[in-house]
Design a protein around this nucleic acid. Sequence first.
DNA 1: GTATTGCTTTACGTTTACGTCAACGTCAAG
DNA 2: CTTGACGTTGACGTAAACGTAAAGCAATAC
Lengths: 134, 134
Amino acid sequence: MPVATRAKAPEQTWTIREIAEEFDVTHRTVRHYEDLGLISPERVGTTRIYHRRDKTRLGLILRGKRLGFPLEEIRTIIDLYDAPRGRRSQLEYVLGQIDERRSDLEQRRRDLDAALSELDRFEESCRNDLGRLG
Amino acid sequence: MPVATRAKAPEQTWTIREIAEEFDVTHRTVRHYEDLGLISPERVGTTRIYHRRDKTRLGLILRGKRLGFPLEEIRTIIDLYDAPRGRRSQLEYVLGQIDERRSDLEQRRRDLDAALSELDRFEESCRNDLGRLG
DNA sequence: GTATTGCTTTACGTTTACGTCAACGTCAAG
DNA sequence: CTTGACGTTGACGTAAACGTAAAGCAATAC
């Protein structure tokens, strides 16, 4: 009956190698993100211990990268999610930042949609040519 | 009655400075794209003359950049649009490339949508906090 | 004339995002 | 006890995407 004896569920942790492997990056990349302050794993002695929140953050970082954001900008975004929201002024600042982020992302979506429709038109034109050859 | 006398409409052209200004980049950037083979303006003596197709290309390049693509990849994309499509094998290659492009762009859209909905949830949470503060 | 303005090339500098050693600590296995 | 396997911290290297400075030609401006 471990339920009665343990105070908390033993939270699972990971080593840097496991983390790197799971996200398909090198340990050097993970350490680089730490250097830039994007993640800050627990330390046991000198060894890094990664918790679930570190994995969440790494996921956010890599998605930001896929979207083409520079790491410094990614840091400000992630930090935004952890920013203090106790005072009204702090909350209003955060809400303003959210709006900026959103317009940025929406611009990207416009670009993306434009690129996709051009691609569609191009494909149709190609299929047309193929038909004439058929 | 210039219509009867001119063989073609005199196509408008631009200088590097005008192009750079219009797209809000430096002339150095424009030349850099030329170095990489992304644009190849006409030359009159040593001076570069930009036509409408150069502007079109520059527009594509900058949109690709906003989407986070590296310049080399942008070059392969742009070249794709100008690729020869005379033979069936060429057309089939192009169609394959189009599919690759499309899955790439669709992955980006998934990332983008995920980022936007997270942002929405975060904003709501902030507005909630703001409401509790009165 | 010459002086300024705008274009050119060449070439080295900078930032970002890691890669790649080198040199060392540590812990379980043989 | 020493040999790996895995961890650590520097420190230097590199590729991409330009910035920037140097030095030159060429056409208007005065």
